[in-house]
Design a binder for these strands. Structure first.
Lengths: 140, 140
DNA sequence: CTGAATCCGATCTGATACTG
DNA sequence: CAGTATCAGATCGGATTCAG
């Protein structure tokens, strides 16, 4: 997991070639959606990894009904979430995180830990960039 | 960090709580950009993790000059890439992947391996969803 | 060679109203 | 309760043009 050191070595390319270049059929883009990760995460914390629509909406702060619906449709299509419809009155629908959905969450943890550890440095960098950059062009 | 009061406590939730809910200050969204990951990856494969603008553009198939510039600006701002400007004629600019940038690439590998292994299942799911869904509404 | 500026269509997101 | 439909603003990404 830790291949970050070694700077000047030209043979470092060997191990790096195993990395996938592709945006992986849009998976990363999907995860980058505004609500996708949080919705998966909320489901993973729920009892039996299941929540009904209204609960999910309440737990996911700030999400609109429309965006929750869209997010769930995409997750359902990719097989990360299973939809259970109960034809009652009023209707009840539960969304369940599949094994696939739980799996990607687990795989995401390494990245999230890295982000948690390095976010301060990133934000420093942003601060510095915004401060020094507001006066000059790119030719210096 | 924790906003919602939990209804049920399973054993499985215990380990899941360590996961970060937040889109992590836009990091995941940035990675989901159309070109970000590939640009980082191209730099990581280069000698001394450095490439000049035109080389990077040539290696990154399909990217426009504008998008490469924007992608690099964002990466530079976050501290993932360092820009080296040489005031020659014609001008030469090299971009170097920083330790930070290489680090996130390494952290991404777990996720990418998972995607590689599970993409077939995801695409099956998409196929099934698109096939069965085109006739009925959501109430079934 | 590097990169900024502009225009434009496509997509994303939110707000709102309506339906079974 | 769950979901759809519609509209509007914001952002994204591509094509093109101009400039240091």
């Amino acid at each position: 997991m830790d291949t970050s050191s070694q700077s000047g070595s030209d043979k470092q390319t060997e191990s790096a070639r195993s990395f996938l270049p592709q945006p992986s059929n849009g998976i990363c883009a999907r995860l980058g959606d505004k609500w996708t990760i949080e919705v998966i995460w909320r489901l993973s914390l729920a009892e039996k990894r299941r929540l009904r629509f209204s609960d999910l909406k309440r737990k996911t702060d700030g999400i609109t009904q429309r965006m929750l619906t869209l997010t769930l449709r995409n997750l359902e299509r990719d097989g990360f979430v299973k939809r259970h419809y109960f034809p009652e009155v009023p209707p009840r629908v539960e969304y369940e995180l599949t094994g696939l959905g739980a799996g990607i969450l687990a795989s995401l943890q390494g990245l999230n830990l890295w982000i948690r550890d390095n976010l301060p440095r990133i934000e420093e960098s942003r601060q510095a960039y915004d401060d020094t950059g507001e006066q000059g062009n790119r030719f210096r």
